[in-house]
Structure formats: structure tokens, C-alpha cells
Simulated scan of single mutants.
Amino acid sequence: MFNFDHPKLAALAETEGYSDIVDFMEDCALDSLVPAICMAPGCDYTAELEPDQRTGFCELCGRPSMKSGLVIAGLI
């Protein structure tokens, strides 16, 4: 099931310059590196990571909490 309503996904799309989450997903769906965001409360650090990343290291808060936008949306 897709989850385009997640607040972190909206923040990630906005950071990448998109006002529409569907457009954001379409543009990065086939890339080898995609935008990811830290899922830790209070941290919105973003980076380019693998499309299936679920526990990437956040360089800002130091937690293994980076998640790909494709994973957050439920596409992977």
C-alpha cells in the first residue's frame, strides 16, 4: 500500500523542490541514488542514498535512521 501522506515524505519532496509528491516519486523512481531523509524526531537531514535504503547513517544526528523516499512512500 502506498503512503504519500507521510509528513517526512512531504518534507523531502519540498526540500527537493517539488510541490507534488507524485511528481517527485515519478522523477526519482528509476534512479540509482534517490533522496532520503532522516526519520528521527527533530532531524530532517537529507542525502542521496540507495533506493531501498531503510537504515542509512544520518551525518547530522548520528543515528541509523535515514530512509529513502521510495521506501517511505511504499514503492519499495
Score class of each variant (00 low, 15 high):
M1K: 13
F2M: 11
F2V: 12
N3K: 13
F4G: 10
D5L: 13
D5C: 08
H6Y: 12
H6N: 14
H6I: 13
P7G: 03
P7Q: 08
P7I: 09
P7W: 09
P7E: 10
K8A: 04
K8P: 00
K8H: 09
L9Y: 09
A10K: 14
A11E: 15
A11G: 01
L12Y: 11
L12F: 11
E14A: 15
T15M: 08
E16D: 09
G17Y: 04
G17Q: 06
Y18A: 01
Y18M: 04
S19D: 14
S19Q: 15
S19K: 14
S19A: 10
S19L: 11
D20R: 14
I21R: 05
I21W: 02
I21L: 10
D23F: 07
D23T: 13
F24T: 06
F24E: 06
F24D: 02
M25A: 15
M25E: 08
E26V: 12
C28P: 02
C28L: 07
C28I: 13
A29Q: 15
A29H: 15
L30G: 06
L30P: 00
D31A: 08
S32V: 13
L33F: 13
P35S: 06
P35Y: 02
P35C: 02
P35A: 00
A36G: 15
A36T: 09
I37E: 01
C38I: 05
C38W: 01
M39Y: 08
M39T: 15
M39C: 07
A40E: 14
A40N: 12
A40I: 03
P41E: 13
P41F: 02
P41C: 00
G42R: 07
C43A: 05
C43Q: 05
C43M: 05
C43E: 04
D44S: 11
Y45I: 01
T46Q: 01
A47L: 04
A47C: 07
E48D: 11
E48I: 03
E48W: 13
L49D: 06
L49M: 14
E50F: 02
Q53N: 03
Q53C: 10
Q53D: 04
R54S: 02
T55C: 11
G56H: 06
G56K: 04
G56T: 05
G56D: 05
F57S: 04
F57G: 00
C58K: 01
C58F: 01
E59C: 09
L60H: 09
C61G: 05
C61E: 08
C61H: 08
C61N: 09
G62C: 06
R63P: 00
R63Y: 03
P64Y: 14
P64S: 14
P64L: 11
P64N: 15
S65C: 10
S65P: 01
S65L: 12
M66V: 08
K67D: 00
S68E: 00
S68Y: 01
G69I: 04
G69D: 03
L70H: 02
L70W: 03
L70T: 03
V71W: 05
I72L: 12
I72F: 00
I72W: 02
G74Y: 09
G74L: 08
L75A: 13
I76S: 07
I76R: 13
I76C: 11
